[in-house]
Design a protein around this nucleic acid. Sequence first.
DNA 1: GCCAACGTTGGC
DNA 2: GCCAACGTTGGC
Length: 155
Amino acid sequence: MNYWLFKSEPNAYSYDDLVVDSTAEWDGVRNFQARNYLRDSIKAGDLVLFYHSNAKPPCVVGTASVVRSGYPDYTAWDPRSDHPDPKSSPDNPIWYMVDIQAKERFKQPISLNEIRGNYLLSEMLLLRRGMRLSVQPISEEHYAIICHLGQIDKI
DNA sequence: GCCAACGTTGGC
DNA sequence: GCCAACGTTGGC
């Protein structure tokens, strides 16, 4: 099993939205490195930290589980979607997505500042200079630590 | 709103 | 292949 951090701007799609929807298609990712993770590496059963970017403060707010492994992001060839890409087609899909399901909301959201201030978390990609990937791998250890800080059970 | 750090595009 | 211009991300 692998562990990931997914970023979302709460204005666009928040953890509350995921809880209401229960399951969501994680569509609209238009970055090749993130696409590769979605297509090749993120599998059903993997666990996800849900991070609110552009929030005050930016923070991890809960967990989710992957319920469907990577498959073509069909919104790319829908011209009315939020992120159309005319180069992508059903015969030649460029972009991929997974489905995730809300798991547990943190009793205590863990802010970026708190992550930055915790030496146990200092190796996280999230803290790398200029690290803007919206889908990024994290270690099982970092996943467990942040769940612990957020006061929920890891699994 | 500002701006640094990227990623992408396209001329050459 | 280089690189300038441009667009986006995302913290502050």
